[in-house]
């Protein structure tokens, strides 16, 4: 498959981001580029502008990148970065972190375009577990 939409997981916790990436690999396979920006610059709990910027660059394939933040400063930092460096192919998406990432990764694995991957992540708000 030539080029799928990439995903960037932004979390306060490096472990949380890395664990979610492991889950996405298992559910969606290796075809989708999933990069992580977890923790602060020193590897502690927090958020790093530079790590997010690098993760977006790493995930980019030309098909587009979906950025999924967990909460709080992850959202604010990612938002600030994308406001300073706007790119129509990089989209910050408001979605539940785990469910949105799973839905987005699986749809991205089918070769879906950026709009479809964004929609899949946002639709995760409506997915009931029980």
């Amino acid at each position: 498959m030539s080029g799928t939409v990439g995903l960037v997981l932004v979390s306060h916790s490096p472990d949380l981001a890395a664990g979610l990436r492991d889950l996405l690999r298992q559910v969606a396979g290796d075809a989708v580029a999933v990069t992580v920006a977890g923790g602060d610059d020193d590897g502690g709990l927090g958020t790093s502008y530079e790590l997010i910027r690098d993760a977006i660059a790493e995930a980019g394939s030309g098909e587009g990148v979906v950025v999924l933040p967990d909460l709080g400063s992850s959202v604010l930092t990612a938002k600030a970065l994308l406001e300073q460096h706007p790119d129509p192919k990089v989209r910050l998406v408001d979605a539940p972190f785990v469910e949105g990432a799973v839905a987005a990764a699986v749809i991205a694995a089918t070769g879906a375009d950026l709009d479809a991957v964004v929609d899949a992540a946002e639709e995760a708000w409506h997915a009931r577990k029980l």
Binding site: Q26, V27, A28, G29, V106, T110
Partner: peptide, 14 residues
Amino acid sequence: HARPAGQVVVTAAK
């Protein structure tokens, strides 16, 4: 569960 569900989506999309 998660893995077969992912396979269903990827397969159906073909």
